[in-house]
Design a protein around this nucleic acid. Structure first.
Lengths: 133, 133, 133, 133
DNA sequence: GTGGTCTAGACCACT
DNA sequence: GTGGTCTAGACCACG
């Protein structure tokens, strides 16, 4: 049973919130390859959102290669071998890193703090991954 | 003279990019209370963007209390640094760091690559700041 | 002015028909990098289909890297540098090639005919590409 | 003994894959008029798919006049080859070829690669056919 | 039961 | 004006 929380006033699109939380569960090992996700109808009822919003979240995740939907069967986590080129991957990560760094700088946070936080987040993913197996 | 760079392909709204970079200059000390900002007409011409986009950026900044427009005189900085508490700062950074880490995990990028990219981006900001002063 | 024809009884999803025809126009050089596509509202009215169906076609094309949509400006053809790995590309093409070959075999079409048809289609794309430049 | 292979990841509906491969065997002469097909129960067990999926494949084939089910006796082939005219055949193949070429263009794959892949797939079908006889 | 597509219509964000 | 998101509800395809 997946615990996803939606904040309709956050300004972040609802389908994005769904995607992000599923990705986080995957990174932290609570969801792994082969696991079945809640059905579109079920999740939409649980979250009190429109089914098509869930459809959008799921199909974006499918585009990203994170999940796979099978007609009449359901939606499943894939063992994603990335189909992105190295340069595309680097570029995407660099954009996120820059966002973090600029925000930190703007707030006056020292580089050490940024590195510490990133390390901690990396560890959390690693640790949970080990637990899951 | 303010060096603002707009990337129309970044996915971030243009008015947001303008705001962020002005806030960034305020945080890094290049702009401080009392300094005058370029006029709407001037900035829109320099950046080749729509004047109404600059209007939106300025009015959001004014709403946030960061700048003040004085009729017929121009737009001026009213405060020079962020007022966030330490814990709020940490929380905001952690959100961005988590996004980066989760995305990296998704793409199968190793932790080393993430750390390397963050370090590189941190260095780059430092360099720019030194040049600016 | 783009001439797109929709056959609602073909069994092929409408958004797919839109995508395929735009891709074909790109391949044949009638649309090239930088060109603006009809707006969502305009195209939906022209084709007498729902705007969200056009949205779906456009956003799938954007995922494929073929087009780019800019908030408040419109939708434009990109100069797509592929972000797919070589193996993913080969795999996708092989699937289509297999479909063609199996269908041909099923119909009793000789290999020569298949090769001839593929060459002709390749030529058509090539020729029009040269004309466009 | 029919060798049918199902790929649940191909995106093609399972019942379609079953139909296509039976038609393929008919075209290649491995199945001819009067031959008996495996029972629904047997085939569904062999392929590890749902019996209703086999029912759907068989009934579509029956509807198309390719097979005939005789109550209590089994399912039999009624015709052994495609009845398409040359021009219809050419048209169908051209549609598939165009799809392949357009997609290749989209991904920036050179014409040579397309030709190479088609040749390889043609060869592979030939080999299978020879082995079957 | 499952997911896939489409419609009609609304509101928001951006330029 | 542009695209982006969301809702409500329908029908079809698949297993």
């Amino acid at each position: 049973m997946l615990h996803i929380q939606i904040d309709p006033h956050s300004g972040i699109p609802v389908y994005r919130q769904v995607m992000d939380q599923i990705k986080y569960y995957m990174a932290s090992g609570l969801l792994s390859a082969g696991d079945q996700l809640p059905s579109i109808r079920e999740l939409s009822k649980t979250l009190s959102i429109n089914p098509t919003t869930v459809v959008k979240a799921y199909s974006e995740l499918e585009h990203a290669g994170a999940i796979e939907s099978r007609q009449g069967k359901g939606v499943f986590i894939t063992q994603s071998k990335s189909t992105l080129t190295n340069s595309a991957r680097e570029k995407a990560l660099r954009r996120l890193a820059r966002q973090l760094v600029v925000e930190a700088n703007q707030m006056g946070a020292p580089p050490d703090q940024v590195m510490r936080i990133v390390e901690e987040e990396l560890d959390q993913v690693q640790i949970k991954e080990r637990q899951g197996r």
